[in-house]
Amino acid sequence: KRPVSAMFIFSEEKRRQLQEERPELSESELTRLLARMWNDLSEKKKAKYKAREAALKAQSER
C-alpha cells in the first residue's frame, strides 16, 4: 500500500470544512477547489503536510 501524499493529507483535512461552508459544490468541484487551494499554498505551509507525508512513508517502510 502506497503512503498518502502531502496534497491528500491537506485535502482530507480541509474537505469536511469546505463541504460545510459550500454544500452546493459537487464532489468534482470540491476536488478542483482543493487542488487550487493546494497550488496557492505557500511552500512554508506545504512543508507541514510534506513532513507528515515523510513521517507516514517512513512508518510504512518499517
Results as ranks from 00 to 15, higher is better:
S28I: 12
E61K: 09
E21W: 05
M37A: 09
E21A: 08
L34F: 03
E12G: 05
S26L: 04
R62T: 12
S5P: 08
N39L: 07
W38K: 00
R16W: 08
W38E: 01
Q17Y: 06
E53M: 06
K1S: 03
V4G: 09
L25I: 07
K46E: 01
L30R: 08
L34P: 00
A6Y: 06
K50G: 03
R36M: 08
S26W: 00
A6L: 01
L25R: 02
L41R: 01
T31G: 08
A54H: 14
L41I: 07
K48N: 15
S26I: 03
E29P: 00
P3T: 15
T31S: 13
E43R: 02
E24R: 04
M37D: 02
E27R: 07
R15P: 00
S11E: 13
R36W: 05
A54E: 11
P23L: 02
K14S: 10
R16H: 10
A54T: 12
K44P: 12
Q59K: 15
K45D: 11
P23T: 04
E53T: 04
E13N: 02
A54K: 14
R32G: 09
L25P: 00
W38P: 01
S26F: 01
L30N: 03
S42E: 07
K1F: 03
L33T: 08
A54G: 10
R62F: 02
E20P: 03
S11D: 03
S5K: 12
F8E: 15
F8W: 13
L33M: 13
R62G: 15
R15S: 07
K50T: 11
I9Y: 05
E29D: 13
R22V: 03
R16M: 13
M7N: 09
Q17N: 10
T31P: 02
S60Y: 06
K14L: 08
K50D: 05
T31Q: 12
K45T: 10
S60D: 07
V4Y: 09
E53S: 07
K1V: 07
L56P: 06
M37C: 05
E27L: 02
Y49T: 00
E61G: 10
K46S: 01
K1H: 04
R2P: 03
K1Y: 08
A6D: 05
E20R: 14
R2H: 13
L34C: 12
R62K: 15
E12D: 09
K57V: 09
E13V: 05
F10I: 00
S60W: 12
K50C: 12
P3K: 15
K45V: 09
A47L: 11
S5M: 05
L33I: 15
V4W: 01
